[in-house]
């Protein structure tokens, strides 16, 4: 995955809570067997509404999505992350995320940033007042900076390191292949197999 250290870009304010992954990428888009082409499906039902925020030309080229609480709830579809990334987003900021979505994001290098609801609201207001205003998301410093706003965010050391190095989990895990083999050797024989 692409390494993430710091990113500066413009923001899209998405003033909705409980944006589930069915909204981010409706099921009809999940039939593809490749990893590409999901940008067209991003919020495809909502994008049919000309008033939807992503249809406003002033937000073209924005790379940071600032959303309401419980973003990415529901289905485990990683396609939601692919769609956001392929559309051009590098960061999603929200007060709280769906667990699986957040996991999927960190596997792919899309940075989910949790900030207090008031800070998220302030960032949304700022992006509405000045769509050209930039936000800096600094993973090294664990900090979001936007004009007057400086907001620290939490992320565990390991995930931060993996994102900053752009490391793929499978390669990391396979360094412990001996541990896996040792564990397997001790598994009780009564456990089922699918054979």
């Amino acid at each position: 995955m692409e390494a993430f250290t710091t990113h500066t870009g413009r923001a899209v304010p998405l003033r909705r809570s409980n944006v589930d992954t069915d909204q981010i990428i409706p099921a009809v888009w999940l039939k593809q067997v490749s990893r590409t082409g999901f940008d067209k499906g991003l919020f495809s039902a909502w994008r049919e509404d000309p008033g939807f925020v992503l249809n406003q030309p002033e937000y073209d080229g924005a790379t940071i999505l600032v959303a309401g609480t419980d973003f990415g709830t529901g289905s485990s579809r990683e396609h939601a992350v692919w769609a956001l990334q392929q559309y051009g987003f590098r960061v999603v900021i929200a007060p709280r995320f769906g667990d699986i979505f957040r996991n999927n994001s960190t596997k792919m290098g899309l940075l989910p940033v949790i900030l207090p609801a008031e800070t998220v609201e302030a960032l949304q207001t700022r992006a509405e007042q000045d769509p050209k205003a930039e936000i800096t998301v600094d993973l090294a410093a664990r900090e979001v900076r936007a004009g007057e706003i400086t907001a620290p965010f939490e992320i565990d050391d390991y995930t931060r390191w993996r994102l900053m190095e752009g490391l793929d989990d499978i390669g990391l895990t396979l360094r412990h292949a001996d541990d896996i083999a040792a564990f397997e050797a001790d598994r009780p024989g009564r456990l089922p197999t699918t054979a």
Binding site: S76, R77, E78, H79, V81, I100, N104, K107, D169
Partner: peptide, 9 residues
Amino acid sequence: GIGTSEVEH
């Protein structure tokens, strides 16, 4: 539940 990256993992 897990995502596709984790399925691969």
